[in-house]
Each structure stands twice: as structure tokens, then as C-alpha cells.
Simulated scan of single mutants.
Amino acid sequence: MQIENILVVSPMWKEIQSLISENKLQKNFRYVSETQVVQDDLEWADAFVAFNIEKEFDYRQVKWVHSLGAGVDSFVYKKEWPEQVLLTRTICSFGQRIAEYCLSYILRDIQFHEQFQRNKLEKRWQPITPGLLSEQKVMIFGTGEIGQTMAKTFSFLGVDVYGVSLSGKTKEYFSEVNAIDSFEDRLKEMNYIINTLPLTENTTGLFDHEFFQAVHDVGFINVGRGASLDEAALLLALEKQQVRFAVLDVFSNEPLSSENKLWEHPHVWITPHISAVTTPSEGVDCFIDTLKNIEANKPLLNKVDIQKGY
């Protein structure tokens, strides 16, 4: 595949332009903000590089679409994708970033940070023995690149890691991997549940009332997609103490409305979709590597399976 005209759409397009220019690629580039891009731009382009596009476009005019993020649901979820158009996604430090993000909240929990801070404010001397990571069981939903990196990090620290995937195929660093329709029996054993799944027909609303009925006193962390979580079901599970606390980095509607009840809940931690940020340099590096592999007709490890949605 030969690529000549490349359209880059991003709120960080100036930084991306500067980084791409350093590589002296012999291509024609057009840089546009997300609010200014129009269909005519795509008709000019051979390749479309963007992240989280909210507008509807006809991608049949281009040869290749590259997502600057790990997720591609804004391109394919509940949409018809033209089969002749290649779709790739960014793979970089997401696994490491998400692993460290989740680990920070697990350590905060087993080290009793909140309790000791309350004791300090009350000038109360009350020894509590912290837990150990080697005593914890974690179930990670999603055993792809991100899930495997998390499992590697956690298992190295002694955590007993379980996985859930579409196929249930055994993966390294997981004690056990269950298929997405057969994990319920393990739920009550878990201390923490982490969602890293992409948004597909199979994962929409996965964490619902029925799911939370099967857990007990668990920590729930969502770094996958907001639409995989039924927020009302989570709030009820918190009330029933099925869920001890929740850490939410992604939401169905972003930014999260100030009216949303999650803001006020004392056992919910909210972050603004920052657990796996694509830095401009990482995004450009992955884009350039993918471009070179495409033109050299080499295998693409970041090619999206349209049927699976990731």
C-alpha cells in the first residue's frame, strides 16, 4: 500500500506536526483540529490519523485509518466499517501506565491510607497491620496487551491474577483465564476487579446488577470503557457493600456531568480519563512505525479485527 497524503486530526496537532517534521517523512501532511475537519479533507487523504472522533465521516475515500488511542470504538462501535479500509490503533506504554494507576489504588487500600489520615486528623494512635499484595486476588477483564502487562506487573509482586476474555484462552502471567460467559464462579474469591475491555456488543453493560450480585466486599476499577458499566447498579452495589470502593477513569458521557451522583459518593474515586494517556511522542512513534510497516508490506501487530472491534 502506498500512502502519500496524510490527514492528522487532533487537539494536539501542533505538537504532532513538530514531532513528525523531525522525521523528515517524504509525505504530504494536512493538520486540522477536531472541530475544523470536514469530509473534503478525507477526500484529499490516503490516510486519516485521529483520536476519538465524534463527527460521522465516510471513510471509504481513504486507504488507512490510524487511531492515536488504544480504543477504536468511536470508529467501529455500532457502525459499518468499509472492509477495504485498513484500521490500526496505537500500542505504546498503555499497559504500564494502567498497571501503575491500578496498583496505586490497590496499595492505598491495603495500606489503609485513608484510615491513617483520619486517625492523624483526630490525633488517634491506632496501629493497623497493612495487607500484603501476595494475599490479594485480582480479576482482570481483558487479557490483551494491556491486561497482560498488568498481569505481569501484579504477578511479579505476588498477586494472584485471574483473567476474563472473549475466548478464555490461557495467557502467560494469569493463574487462570475464563471465557466472558463463564467467570461467575470465581467472582466471590476476588479482592479486586479491574476492567480493561474495549467497548463491543459483548461488553456493553457487562457490569450490571446481576454482575454485582455475585461479588462481595470487592474493589472495582474501570479503566476500559464507561459504557461497560451500569452506574446505577454500581451505586446500589456500594450501598449493599457488595463493592467496597470504586475507582472510575472512564464514563459513558465525558466529561462527567456535575449532576452525576458518583461525584458525591464517599467511596468512589473519579479521574478524568487519564489512566492511559497517549503522549504526542508515543503517538507519533507508533504512527510512523505503522506507516513504515504498511509500505514495506510487513505484519501489523496493531491491526484492528473489525469483527471483534479491537
Rank of each mutant, 00 (worst) to 15 (best):
A45G: 03
Y77V: 05
V164D: 05
Y310N: 07
V8P: 01
K188A: 15
W64I: 03
D285L: 14
G144N: 12
K120M: 10
Q36Y: 05
F112H: 15
D249A: 10
Q36C: 00
F116T: 10
I306Q: 04
L229C: 10
Q241M: 07
L236E: 03
L133G: 09
I180Y: 07
T200F: 02
I274W: 01
G131K: 09
T278G: 01
E201K: 15
D185A: 15
I91C: 11
G168V: 09
Q136R: 14
T35Y: 06
A233I: 02
S258M: 13
S21T: 04
I91E: 10
P280Q: 08
D305E: 15
G158A: 10
V38D: 08
N222A: 08
K14L: 11
H216Q: 10
L25M: 04
Q61S: 14
N222K: 08
E201N: 12
F75T: 07
S104V: 12
G131L: 10
F116M: 15
S93R: 02
T196I: 06
G144E: 04
V159C: 03
T196E: 06
L133C: 06
Q126C: 11
S257M: 07
K27W: 11
E100Q: 07
F212H: 01
I294L: 14
L68R: 03
T149Y: 04
K169S: 12
E135W: 11
L229A: 07
I193F: 05
T290Q: 05
R30L: 04
S275D: 02
A232N: 02
S155W: 07
A151S: 09
N5D: 05
L157D: 00
D160P: 04
D181W: 12
L262C: 06
E184D: 15
L301Y: 15
N191G: 11
S258L: 12
T271Q: 05
C102L: 12
S175M: 07
